[in-house]
């Protein structure tokens, strides 16, 4: 008799832990053929708020780490992901029904994307900062700082898309609350396991699974969230209402893309600069 599999319970990833949704709800996630893969946790408003609390709590420590250290931690995520690449290839094939070759491409690209962004940690400041030649005896420099807590509606690409929106937010020192792809949530939680074992402090990335239409409005209107990334929002009406809600505390908004994104292409630095604030410091020069 064949051995019976030990199936995984997919839960949320909040504050470095894997809780069930406080609502007790789950939803069915099927594979590409329509067979049951798992029951995923269906996050609620309360879960979203708990995740914001965790992200805020983590922000002080994470943003004050050295850029060198943040780069190493994100690089470590790439290392651990590389070690589990077969598992991710299998998951992508199951959930999206893609070929082995395609799944390999996406997993490789996701690992490489993490490495690419890891390297940015201690370079982006030099690229976007300036020494300002003011007309007077003053030392004057401008340098970027992280925006704070960023809510992210992740695109449907369950691994590469997710990594491509989360890595730039955290490598710059922000913490985030991510709503994973509703259709393909399981890979996100497995990626949470990778993060939990990669020296990434709890709360820096918080992953929610469930309905973006249900959860995103609570994050868009949350007064302790500083920015919101609408990349994964495909319904224009929802995108507009989220942007309207985000105005309550003037969150920085990255709008949903106008055209489909090619996640395999090398990104620009805009996803880094979206979550950075410029701070300018003046001091008189004199003896």
């Amino acid at each position: 008799m064949a051995r019976i599999d030990v199936k995984k319970t997919y839960k949320l990833y909040i504050g470095g832990e894997f809780p069930r949704s406080e609502s007790g709800r789950t939803y069915v996630v099927n594979d590409a053929q329509g067979n049951l893969l798992a029951n995923a946790a269906q996050a609620s408003r309360k879960d979203a708020r708990d995740a914001v609390v965790a992200a805020r709590k983590a922000f002080g420590g994470w943003s004050s780490r050295t850029a060198y250290n943040r780069g190493q931690v994100v690089y470590r995520i790439a290392e651990v992901l590389e070690g589990r690449r077969d598992q991710f290839v299998a998951e992508l094939r199951a959930s999206e029904g893609v070929t082995a070759a395609k799944a390999n491409t996406f997993v490789d690209a996701a690992i490489d994307r993490l490495v690419w962004y890891a390297g940015w940690a201690d370079k982006i400041t030099q690229v976007v900062s300036s020494a300002n030649p003011v007309a007077g005896p003053f030392f004057n420099i401008s340098a970027p700082e992280p925006t704070g807590v960023v809510a992210v509606v992740a695109p449907s690409g369950p691994l590469l898309g997710l990594v491509s929106v989360v890595a730039p937010a955290i490598v710059t020192g922000n913490t985030c609350v991510v709503i994973a792809s509703e259709a393909h949530p399981l890979t996100a939680i497995t990626l949470g396991e990778v993060m939990a074992t990669s020296d990434l402090p709890g709360g820096v990335v918080n992953l929610l699974t469930g309905s973006a239409a249900e959860i995103a409005p609570w994050l868009a209107s949350h007064m302790d969230v500083n920015g919101i990334d609408l990349t994964g929002v495909t319904d224009p009406d929802l995108a507009t209402s989220l942007e309207v809600a985000a105005a309550d505390n003037l969150k920085r908004v990255r709008r949903a893309p106008e055209a489909p994104v090619d996640w395999l292409a090398t990104p620009g630095i805009d996803r880094l600069t979206d979550w950075l604030e410029t701070k300018t410091v003046w001091h008189p020069i004199g003896v």
Binding site: S130, N132, P133, V134, A135, G136, F138, N140, S142, T147, N226, N249, L250, R252, E277, T278, K279, T280, V281, W282, H283, P284
Partner: peptide, 29 residues
């Protein structure tokens, strides 16, 4: 958490020096 910090001076402005806020002081410089 502020877009401009004046140390031992205040209310200095210059075209070469980015100005603008964090949080509800707005966005962009």
């Amino acid at each position: 958490r502020a877009g401009v910090v004046w140390a031992n001076t205040f209310n200095k402005f210059d075209p070469t020096s980015p100005f603008g806020g964090y949080k509800e002081s707005g966005y962009g410089r």
